[in-house]
């Protein structure tokens, strides 16, 4: 066995520690080396919690294998796992990711009692009538009148927004947040967007133009890769 070649390289950064895992070493070796390295030197017990990032390089690990790895690190009291990164995706993950990134363009009227759901962003060309509802895991864009319910970021993305050419919804939902129309009758507004304001933890409605400041680069691949 080649002793010079390390299976795990540990680097200190200002964000904590990064464990760089050698791509070519066997898993068995990696686990063993992790055990020894962690029990020997790295951290002394009096220090505050240290964040650990694990960089797998071009290696793919199944969820069970990741879990095993995490177990070893977690057993050391003052280490917390921040992130595991890998350059590799399975086909299924890539497919799912692609769907999340996609924007579905749909031309129709969503009428009373009808529900429309898409993965990724929804671009609806048409109205959502009272009693109709649309939802997406990403953003909801409506080129028409929103008179019903819209739910963006339905799987938990709080950054998701809802934009409509005419905004007069009965309810807006973003991730787990909800806002409903006032109990008095209102005229709708043209060219509006809704988003979650992290400070007040509320859904706010504003002119479409504010998106350039609150969500710059909305819909760009990089941004969505981070959120995805």
């Amino acid at each position: 066995m080649n002793n010079k070649k390390q299976a795990i390289t540990i680097k200190g950064t200002k964000d904590g520690l990064t464990f760089i895992i050698d791509e070519t070493s066997s898993l068995e070796l990696i686990m063993k080396e992790l055990e020894t390295k962690l029990s020997s030197k790295v951290v002394d017990q009096d220090q505050p919690m240290v964040k650990v990032n694990i960089d797998l390089g071009n290696r793919y690990l199944s969820n069970e294998m990741k879990e095993e790895l995490l177990e070893i690190v977690r057993n050391k009291q003052n280490l917390v796992i921040n992130e595991i990164t890998s350059n590799v995706l399975t086909k299924e993950e890539a497919q799912e990711w692609y769907e999340e990134l996609e924007i579905s363009t749909i031309t129709r009227i969503v009428r009373a009692g009808q529900k429309l759901h898409v993965k990724g962003d929804l671009l609806l060309i048409g109205d959502v009538n009272p009693g109709g509802s649309v939802s997406a895991t990403g953003n909801v864009y409506i080129l028409g009148r929103l008179n019903g319910i819209a739910h963006a970021g339905i799987d938990g993305n709080q950054e998701a927004i809802i934009a409509a050419a005419y905004m007069n919804p009965t309810q807006l939902r973003i991730s787990g947040f909800l806002s409903r129309s006032p109990d008095f009758e209102t005229e709708g507004l043209f060219m509006e967007c809704a988003y979650v304001d992290q400070k007040t933890e509320q859904i706010l409605i504003d002119r479409l133009q504010t998106l350039t400041t609150i969500r710059p680069g909305l819909g760009s691949i990089e941004r969505r890769m981070i959120n995805g």
Binding site: R111, A112, G113, N129, P130, G131, G132
Partner: peptide
């Protein structure tokens, strides 16, 4: 009336 229009919309769908 609103309720009637709502039901009409449902039927049209």
């Amino acid at each position: 009336e609103k309720s009637s229009v709502r039901d009409a919309d449902r039927i049209i769908g």
